[in-house]
Design a protein around this nucleic acid. Structure first.
Lengths: 293, 293
DNA sequence: GCGATTTGTCCTAGAAATAATACAATTGTG
DNA sequence: CACAATTGTATTATTTCTAGGACAAATCGC
């Protein structure tokens, strides 16, 4: 092997590439969910896809296997592969106001599994968000919430130790954290939420029963008390196929003062023995159960 | 076909697996961003990681290469690899209210690239959302918005044809769509937004200058007019490292009527010649520029 | 029925990822 | 300085992914 090095010097620029199979899988998935391939229609044949994308038929086939496993396509030998028509997107329009209340009322229970409960010195960004003194500890918990035994959220919380002492490990397994806090006299006044997206790592993937590289909704919330100090820091991950954040906004005002305003959060359904759900705030939770192999 | 099933029956359970390198990459990334590995601290040595996860050192090495490329770790021969302390997470707390206004005021311009402009029969779910008659066409556009020449959003819109005729291809490249619509007399009254997450496919990945399997924020918005019919359907994808949705909520009410209410959307900064940004509504846009190789 | 097309299955060879090992270069420590 | 530990680099098997082709089975149109 004389000139082995010439091809190597620049290779370190390579990012971590996904397999060709995965690329085609995502491409077709994109085409289907975007509506480019409409439900019921036939996809190009495997040989055709192979030639079009410059790949072998085996690779195309693997990608289609994945789509079939997801229920996005249906394959019929001799006929072709067709886009499935069973609504691929999770929460179809429908009126999903107060969905959470509906679900609990319908007897579909949400279980909470407590994976960790400890007192730790939180990482700097969290300590800063809660305005903790250097070295001050926090009560940290890790929960997974499921509906009908399908996990849909992965919750990591930090509460200043002085406040965290008001509830026990057992409390956390049975009741929402914010409810526990308010019940023990803590007064929340403000909350900051940030919604983003991230990839499922091995740990979150297993906890949420999801593939390792799949997309998750990321929600970070910081709840502040009357003194402006932090009460709770929540870092939540949601399965997008089980959960979506929905909000309604109204166009208000005139002329230069026109603006959008979110529909206010006063409970809309009944007397609201539970005013509204602490983890959803007034945002509506659209939760859909999907078939899963 | 006598025993066609022998080696096959269980193999189809295989999902599309990500490479081992990618798994370790995501695992370590998870550990770092979650604070399990804190900034400045030393990671386990490469041989140690290899043995711990039952992988070869080459694989571990590739994963670390990726993390180093992302700037999450710093490697020092002879010493070890350390967690970088340059805030890995994009919008560090800070007061990012009206960031969008700040950005434009600071002269950091947002460019819009119009990738497509056509009149089509929209896919069924979109047609239904806009309450179009069967076969009714819509004006469809595809735009990519960038800030400082770094793309951060991928916008697909559908507007009923009768309304879409009030603006031209050129209008869309220069002004926000909602502004165009209201300028031509269309009155919006309500909007429904849903936020979720999805993976970047080959097309969106290229448009947003992102790896193919990376996570994106997905926002779907349906704007309704006075007659309750649809005005605009927006399907937007955002780069999470460039954009995050932020909202502030206040705890209101007493006793059984306690609830969370989002801070109302009246413009807060100055006279607001642009009342607020049409694509952010009253939600705050946290946009951060990050280094990128 | 017949032929054309499509998916299902199998096989072989090449390309790429991974494992396993060895050694050099750098750093920190006693 | 000598030594241990760490990252950087290289080499060689082994396994997995991919390309390319062949053929059978199923479906559709004529």
């Amino acid at each position: 092997m004389p000139a082995c090095s010439p091809g190597w010097s620049l290779l370190s620029l390579d990012a971590i590439e996904t397999s060709k199979t995965h690329k085609v899988y995502l491409l077709l998935k994109e085409r289907i969910t975007s509506g480019a391939f409409q439900p019921g229609h036939r996809l190009p044949s495997e040989p055709h896809l192979a030639e079009t994308h410059g790949l072998s038929r085996v690779t195309i086939r693997r990608a289609l296997d994945g789509l079939a496993r997801d229920g996005l396509i249906i394959r019929q030998a001799g006929s072709g592969t067709f886009v499935s028509d069973n609504s691929s997107r999770p929460p179809v329009s429908a009126d999903l106001a107060n969905m959470m209340a509906h679900l609990t009322a319908m007897g579909r229970s949400t279980q909470v599994r407590l994976l960790a409960f400890s007192y730790v010195v939180p990482p700097p960004p969290i300590a800063a968000a809660l305005k903790l003194k250097p070295g001050e500890r926090s009560q940290s918990s890790l929960r997974v919430r499921s509906i009908d035994n399908v996990p849909f959220s992965y919750l990591t919380t930090h509460v200043p130790e002085r406040i965290g002492l008001t509830y026990t490990r057992h409390d956390l397994g049975s009741r929402p954290l914010l409810e526990l806090l308010e019940r023990s006299g803590v007064v929340a006044t403000k909350a900051n939420q940030t919604i983003s997206a991230t990839l499922a790592g091995p740990e979150t993937a297993e906890a949420l029963d999801v593939e390792i590289g799949s997309a998750l909704i990321s929600l970070t919330r910081i709840v502040l008390g009357v003194d402006g100090r932090g009460i709770e820091h929540l870092s939540a991950l949601y399965r997008p196929d089980m959960h979506a954040f929905h909000m309604e906004m109204l166009r208000k005002g005139d002329g230069a003062n026109r603006h959008w305003r979110p529909t206010a959060g006063a409970p809309t359904a009944g007397k609201a023995s539970k005013p509204n759900h602490p983890d959803g705030q007034e945002m509506t939770l659209a939760t859909s159960a999907r078939r899963r192999a």
